[in-house]
């Protein structure tokens, strides 16, 4: 991958660029795919898949995010440490969300729905 991109940069008459130059057609392809996936997720939301709707929507969103990260944000070409930093952050979010969810689900039945004395009448 590095080689081809290098070649392209060289072809453009530049060899001294800092960082990796992503080939134009890769960027265009990613852009197109992102738009297509947006369409897909809207369409999928129109189909009743029961409890799978959320999963499908998240799967598509994750695919889109991955494309942005790898190509627009250059992770595909950068040092692994940057991806490690990012994934670590995601893991901590996952930890936080999952434990808070686990706990609040366990006591949720003790809350009174609609008990809102501060709501405007």
């Amino acid at each position: 991958m590095r080689e081809t991109a290098h070649a392209e940069a060289a072809a453009a008459g530049q060899t001294a660029a800092v960082g990796h130059v992503v080939p134009l057609r890769v960027l265009v392809a990613v852009w197109g795919t992102l738009l297509a996936l947006t369409g897909l997720t809207v369409a999928a939301a129109g189909v009743d898949l029961g409890s799978y709707n959320l999963g499908v929507a998240m799967l598509i969103a994750t695919a889109k995010a991955t494309l942005v990260l790898l190509f627009f944000m250059h992770l595909r070409y950068d040092r692994p440490i940057l991806a490690i930093v990012f994934v670590t952050a995601l893991l901590f979010v996952a930890l936080f969300v999952s434990i808070a969810l686990l706990d609040s689900n366990a006591y949720a039945h003790q809350l009174i729905p609609g008990y809102g004395p501060a709501l405007p009448k």
Binding site: F96, D103, G116, A118
Partner: peptide
């Protein structure tokens, strides 16, 4: 703004605040 996320009087959950705080 009275957003109500942690305020039980607005349907919020004050225990969630403690999760946030202690995380």
């Amino acid at each position: 703004l009275g957003i109500g996320i942690f305020d039980p009087a607005l349907g919020g959950d004050p225990v969630l605040f403690q999760h946030f705080f202690w995380f």
